[in-house]
Amino acid sequence: MRILLQFAASLLWPPGSLIILLILCSLLALRLRRRSVPAVLLGIAALLIYLLSIEPTAHGMLRNLESRSPGIDLTTSETASAISMREPGTGGAPAPVIVVLGADMQPGSPDGVALGSTSLTRSAGGLLLHRQTGARIIAAGGPAGIPWGSGSTAIGTNSQNRENHSTDTPAEAIAAWLAAAGIARDRITTEGSSRTTAEAARNIMQLLAADSPPVMLVTSAYHMPRALYSFREYQAPIVPVPVDYRANRTPIGLQSFLPDLAHLHNSTTALREFAILAAYAVGFWL
């Protein structure tokens, strides 16, 4: 009965209902004769939407991205040794730095947390990593929007954050959340002018150029390949610390082949990452 209810729901709500509509339009075009080309195109559109809306497709693409960097358990006392930084800053070497790459925001949230779910998960990863290693944190992420829009701010500082307590950018919102979670403000720096991952990498590399400390890079697992590529010119070691895993790693069942909007969103996310990586590969810097 549960499977039947899931099947019915998948047909009533998008994208299932959209797929059914496209199929019906395709059949109608075939019925009207000399409409074979529109019918085929509608049928192809329905098939593509269906394939992108099921779990095997969406999670298969996500797993491809998420498996490119080894996972690190941030909940154990072995975290520091797992990333080969047991004694940061000893022997004259610069202490490692945690970099948290921001993403979505929810400005004006009644709970006071201006972070979207992706940024919040990345921030939680940075918090756990800080508690295991004691490293200082750089929160990155500037105003959303097109690159030539107004409202851009320069690389932020701790004192600026203390003075205005602004959460206008993901970097500032992450810093505010980390401070509320108990991390001292003087252990948090913000990079609040970047609009893309590549810009964030350039700004952070400029910010760290004097000492070039090792960087523990925290971002979503599916986003890590792009982030690592963006930091490829950094002169010190980059340790990937992927969080926000989205691909299902349990056996799939019959319900996995039912179209679902969440799977369509995950497919779109993965396709976007593949497209940007392809752009990087041909020298197009985003």
Rank of each mutant, 00 (worst) to 15 (best):
I137D: 01
H165S: 07
T133R: 09
Q206K: 12
M205P: 01
A201P: 15
A140L: 15
S150Q: 13
S119P: 06
V218R: 07
A201D: 07
A200G: 14
T197D: 06
I204A: 03
G145W: 12
A175W: 03
G125C: 05
P170F: 05
N158F: 08
R185Q: 09
D211W: 04
S123R: 04
T118Y: 11
R195H: 07
T153K: 13
T118R: 13
T121K: 14
A124E: 04
A181C: 09
A198C: 02
M216G: 00
I204T: 07
E163R: 13
L127F: 13
A171P: 13
T189L: 12
S123H: 00
H130R: 09
L120S: 04
D168P: 00
T196K: 12
W177L: 13
G145M: 09
N161E: 10
L120C: 06
G145R: 03
N203C: 02
L217F: 10
E163A: 15
P213W: 01
P214W: 06
A139V: 15
A180R: 14
G125E: 02
A179E: 12
W148V: 07
G145Q: 08
R162F: 04
A198Q: 14
G182W: 06
N164P: 00
L208Q: 04
G134T: 13
H130P: 04
H165V: 11
L208W: 07
M205R: 12
M216H: 02
D168W: 03
L127A: 02
H165T: 06
A184W: 01
G145P: 09
A173H: 08
N203M: 10
I183M: 03
A176R: 11
S212E: 15
A201C: 12
Q206M: 08
R187F: 00
T196F: 11
A154D: 15
G142K: 08
D186H: 14
A210W: 04
G141P: 11
L217P: 10
G182M: 06
S119M: 03
N161A: 10
S117L: 14
G149Y: 10
T167H: 03
T190C: 11
R202N: 02
T167S: 10
I155A: 06
H165N: 13
A184M: 03
A201I: 11
L207N: 02
A135R: 06
P214Q: 06
M205V: 06
M205S: 15
A180C: 00
V218Q: 10
G126I: 03
G156W: 11
